[in-house]
Design a protein around this nucleic acid. Structure first.
Lengths: 340, 340
DNA sequence: GCGCATCGTCGATACGCATCGACAAACCGA
DNA sequence: TCGGTTTGTCGATGCGTATCGACGATGCGC
């Protein structure tokens, strides 16, 4: 592999000049720059990352702590990861994976070994074991998700409270008086995931404001379980029933349960689910959705950490960024004034 | 951050001795080792990855080329990634992501910058642009998937031919005379993904051997499309109809289409899908599955590249490893002799 | 035409670790 | 007891880049 010394020799300059051509930290004459760049191209030179990290104390790598998920909604996690990786590249950073297998010490390891310049922590829970760890780390971190105590941390997430609010308001606008919230699955709630609470808060707030009655149905993992829950909710509904399923994993279950009970979406019942647009549009009856905009969250989280790394003076500065969710009307919700 | 020199000073030895304690490449007396290890613990010493890479010319990082998937079956990709990352850690390697955004040059970049010691390439297609690139790279690579020309390459994949065979044989054993193969979706087939061909080959082989009639139904992306395809297949079936859906994305569609047509799985019709066990068991009627064992593939691919890196003498050695799929009988297939 | 700031380049050094050669000490068999 | 081997440790060097101080060359104002 060619080194900067080889480039220098070929271009007839010193090695330090080559370095300055790359970094631009000192003025270089047009003539010299050209010669050096030609030499680099001719040798297909690429700077050695290890040497660069050693000398500059920056690796241009960001650690990404991915959640350990047995089998829950892995699709959306993948979406985060690939957008994060692609966005990071645009700022000349690479992404190193940190799995939960090592526990929070994994984070200490990659930072201690100086493998990464900063961290992105995915799927942060209300009381997350990783939070106390990153507080003591000498590199910046940005969290996806909002822990209970987030003073001095940089967090970003979808605005779940607003999402809950939007769902109720939109459905109330369509004329629904009773709305069933098909909740997250037990294991998620048990993990103290903060966003569940926030969504509920938004729902309650909007329900009070609009005078809507809310029925809580537990999230169920099987179609049969979901049918039972839905049937029970239907009994208690007044007017045309409406369902909200903010957990992506419940999307299919709710739709199937309602189908099986003989109800036609958008006519006998309104349904709002959380799912990707492509999934929603591919259904026989395209689904009205509340989207948590994972792509936007991913992009912002990268911009945030890159800013921290580029301009360390701006740190430490607490930040809490909430991404506005998007409500998309499709065919699974009834039209206004179309009550029977 | 403490360095090995700090450790050496504290332990009263030379820096090189500290290095030999870590690597074990020279004998160290019990007494000295203890002193050094205590010093390391006391300082919470972690070796600097950049310096280590520079001196040893190994980074202990493996590059993972993840596929660019607009929205197709991202769940299973995530499964690969997390198992690969976790398995790599067991051999003291980290995983660096390489997205498709940079194209094949991304691979040249991470290798050229000496960010990684080797590469794992996911989702390799029949005629993959990345293959010619990695052939010229000075580091070992292992592919998941099998390109047309794979001489001199190390490849690993599920044994799709055997999978096709197993599906037909099992269904024939249950008494089915006509079997409908719900195919992969057009875009997948168009991409020349080799495994589709291999699966078909297995199906054809077993069909000939068992005297089974095969109906090909195109993979469809919507429920409505799937219903039409299924209905057409039903007309042409003799005896109790059977369906195979080897693409994970089709799982829900096939089941829903059959439900909508009023057929009861495991009684009026047999269905075999590809899906995770947890997904299959969570259905109202647990689904009989053909599993491509992504976890096993992931583990093997890591072991393969780690072996290449640990013992470079064993390279280059062509290898083609096929992982045996698993057929799991559940309730969506009829019992033998239960014909009406 | 002179002093002075700016421009452009070079040489030297540091970054933290791995590794090689050297060497003293301990051990062995005869 | 002695040559020879093994054991254990050290000092020196190199890995490839970034960066600092130095310095000659050039441009500027007057």
């Amino acid at each position: 592999m060619p080194t900067s010394k080889d480039v220098a020799r070929l271009a007839g300059v010193s090695q330090s000049t080559v370095s300055y051509v790359m970094s631009g930290r000192r003025p270089i004459s047009e003539k010299t720059r050209k010669r050096v760049e030609d030499a680099m191209a001719q040798l297909a030179f690429q700077p050695n990352a290890g040497a660069r990290a050693l000398a500059s104390r920056r690796t241009q790598v960001i650690g990404l702590a991915i959640p350990f998920v047995p089998d829950l909604h892995m699709g959306s996690i993948m979406e985060f990861i690939s957008v994060i990786a692609a966005t990071a590249r645009q700022s000349d950073y690479d992404i190193l994976l940190v799995t939960d297998d090592e526990g929070p010490q994994g984070l200490e390891r990659v930072v201690g070994q100086q493998l990464v310049d900063g961290l992105i922590i995915m799927q942060v829970e209300g009381d997350d074991a990783r939070v106390p760890v990153i507080r003591n780390l000498p590199v910046p971190s940005v969290l996806i998700g909002i822990p209970e105590k987030h003073d001095g941390l940089e967090c970003i997430d979808a605005d779940f409270e607003l999402a809950g609010q939007m769902c109720i308001e939109e459905l109330a606008k369509l004329g629904h008086e009773t709305i069933t919230l098909v909740d997250w699955q037990d294991e998620v709630i048990r993990r103290h995931v903060n966003y569940v609470k926030r969504f509920h808060r938004g729902v309650d707030k909007a329900a009070a404001a609009t005078g809507t009655k809310i029925i809580h149905a537990p999230g169920r993992i099987t179609v049969a379980g979901m049918e039972k829950a839905v049937a029970k909710a239907l009994e208690q509904s007044r007017g045309i029933p409406a369902f909200i399923a903010p957990e992506a994993a419940n999307q299919d279950l709710v739709v199937e349960a309602l189908n099986n009970l003989g109800l036609v979406l958008g006519k006998d019942v309104s349904v709002v689910v959380n799912s990707s647009d492509s999934d929603a549009e591919r259904q026989r009856i395209p689904l009205t959705t509340i989207g948590f905009e994972p792509d936007e969250v991913s992009r912002r989280v990268v911009h945030m950490i890159v800013r921290d790394l580029t301009d360390p003076m701006s740190r430490p500065h607490e930040a809490l960024e909430l991404i506005r969710p998007v409500f998309r009307h499709r065919k699974s919700t009834v039209r206004p004034h179309s009550k029977r």
